[in-house]
Design a protein around this nucleic acid. Structure first.
Lengths: 151, 151
DNA sequence: TATTGTTATACTCTATAACTATA
DNA sequence: TATAGTTATAGAGTATAACAATA
């Protein structure tokens, strides 16, 4: 799909279409930006998740992410092959693997996060700071993020 | 990808991630809703485009949509096979095909539009009307829709 | 018998490049 | 020689189901 120009009318007046279009454009730009450090968006997401909860099992990573079990195997294989994360056998249950970042993984994640932030700044440049914050809060509400926190 | 619950923290605090996540969820829900009338989102988009500009050539449809030339062939093949649109040889240039909706295509589009509208209502239900309008305008601004109009 | 992780496989979507027919 | 449309093919991304190891 092409994202060089604005989305075509008459669809561009519908909020649902605008959500899809902006979302897809964001995802593709984000993926392109992350290629700089050789990461894909799912890999970046999993790195982020491991950092905030070191030692999660693969199953827990699957539950806490948007990725299914077999894709998680591929992601972790890649992370291990590049020395960014490691699977350790779980203490009490040898079926389980506890996953940790290596120090190299932590450094890579910091780099990737900087790239993601600067990409987001560029993406959101058409909006001033107040508008950006309004958008963020509306999107959180739409995704029901805060309701989930309140559970 | 799963969209049953809210997106995982800590990513859910980033506007860029929220854009991708909401966009993808919207696109998938929209696709599921359209299955009711046997249409895919690209097919729906092309139907909409033909309706607003009857007689466009395939090339013009490609330029006015987000779909590349070879995918457009597949979309139009499908529309013709189902009797929703037809390709006519262009008057002055026999390489070109001018594309029109059939009356059946117009009826189907009306049905699909009703489904799309009711899906969007449901999707946007967490926001009140004023918030929905704010979101719509922020997304248009982000997509630079109005700037393009002003050109 | 159930669960964790793995493998093999198939499916959808889209992009690329080669081909045809007309200009 | 260039353009409109078509066909064939390949690639990314993801999902499904069968399988091995362990509980």
């Amino acid at each position: 799909m092409r994202f060089d120009g604005p989305p075509p009318e008459p669809l561009a007046s519908a909020t649902g279409f605008l959500l899809s279009w902006n979302g897809r454009r964001t995802a593709e730009g984000f993926a392109r930006a992350l290629q700089e450090v050789g990461l894909s968006p799912p890999v970046f997401g999993v790195l982020t998740l491991i950092e905030s909860h070191p030692g999660l099992t693969q199953k827990e990573l699957v539950e806490g992410s948007l990725i299914d079990a077999s894709s998680m195997v591929a992601v972790l294989d890649e992370l291990e092959a590049e020395g960014l994360a490691e699977r350790r056998v779980h203490d009490s249950d040898r079926r389980k693997r506890a996953v940790y970042l290596t120090s190299q993984g932590k450094r890579k994640l910091a780099k990737a996060r900087a790239i993601a932030t600067s990409f987001a700044d560029e993406l959101l440049a058409p909006l001033d700071e107040k508008e950006q914050e309004t958008l963020r809060q509306l999107l959180r509400k739409l995704a029901r993020v805060d309701e989930a926190d309140a559970r």
